[in-house]
Simulated scan of single mutants.
Amino acid sequence: MDCNAGDFEHFEVREPATQTVPFVFNSPHSGSFYPPEFLAESGLDSLAIRRSADHYVDELFADAPELGAPLLLAHFPRAYLDVNREPYELDPRMFDGPLPPFVNIGSMRVAGGLGTIPRIVAENMEIYRRRLPVDEAMSRIETIYKPYHACLRKLIARTHARFGLAILIDCHSMPGNIRLSGSDVRPDFIIGDRYGTSASAELSRAAMQFLDGMGFSAVRNKPYAGGFITEHYGRPVRGLHALQIEINRALYVDEMTLARRPEFPVIAAALSTFMRQMADFVVDFAGGDSALAAE
């Protein structure tokens, strides 16, 4: 594909020699290149500004091309631009000047400081020292956000054309202190399918079963059911399925230093197994009759 042409500095696609499975893997929040001018605009130190990133998630899913599936990954950090939002979810309090009338200023994510251009990281730590020019936000959206999604759409469309279905796995991590509401359970994984609207129930159940079978605790949709990407690209009735997977960071990262834990290779190997199990399941389930292609 030509996604990388001119955009490699912002994101890249790691392609298999030949795509052999109807999967696309996406890691939109694991970027680790922080533009110097962005750091200069921020009042946070180099560790604090990384608190909201999905640390090393692209590495955890690095075997996807070997499996036969493309892996799209961001180089830019989530704190700089969040492609798991609508293109124009912006907080007017962040900008020096009026925003265009088409901007969504009233979403819950904007109210929480987590719009397309985030205002905060982690636990309400303000990113910027001062208001940003409106043109800065529009530039990030035009030059990074839109090309990223154009690339993701191409990958999904190519996969769907080749196999009759496409399964997007949107890969994320979550803080280690996340608990299920009303309990002390801290899940290892959360599978999000927008409460059954973005992917087939069979896919969600299979994902849960495979993780449980490896000894992990896995739950579905709570507290994370999937973001903009899962909601936007999941159309099961058309054979377009989107699952979000959230990994508990405490499994593989020291959340104080953000360094890899010694268990990192174990978790990466488990996710490689998970990807292969999901691919085998789809081949067996579909059985050549496109059972997942149009529910």
Rank of each mutant, 00 (worst) to 15 (best):
V103K: 04
R109I: 01
A64Y: 05
V121M: 08
E246D: 13
E66T: 12
F264P: 02
M125Q: 15
L60W: 05
I156D: 15
P100C: 02
S272H: 14
P87L: 09
A269Y: 05
E136L: 13
A201H: 06
E41C: 07
V283L: 10
R276V: 01
A269Q: 15
A259N: 12
F216C: 03
M94D: 15
R235S: 08
M256Y: 07
V57E: 05
I191P: 04
S183D: 08
G115L: 11
A291Q: 15
R140Y: 04
L152F: 11
R194C: 07
S30K: 05
V21P: 09
F61A: 11
V103P: 01
T116G: 02
E295Q: 06
D91K: 12
R220C: 10
L243K: 08
G115V: 10
M278Q: 14
S139H: 15
L155C: 00
V21Y: 07
C151S: 11
Y145F: 11
R119M: 10
R220Q: 15
M256E: 13
R194N: 12
R249L: 04
P92K: 00
P187G: 08
A157E: 12
E126L: 14
P22T: 10
T143F: 06
R158G: 11
A268Y: 00
P16D: 05
F8M: 05
Q19H: 02
A157H: 05
I167G: 14
A111S: 06
G106T: 07
R130F: 06
L47D: 10
G288E: 09
L258F: 14
G106L: 07
D280F: 06
A79S: 15
V83C: 00
A69H: 11
D289S: 15
V103N: 12
A62Q: 14
F25W: 11
S183F: 01
H10D: 13
S173Q: 02
A137P: 10
E66W: 04
F38M: 09
G43A: 09
C151M: 11
I267P: 09
L168K: 10
P101S: 15
R153S: 13
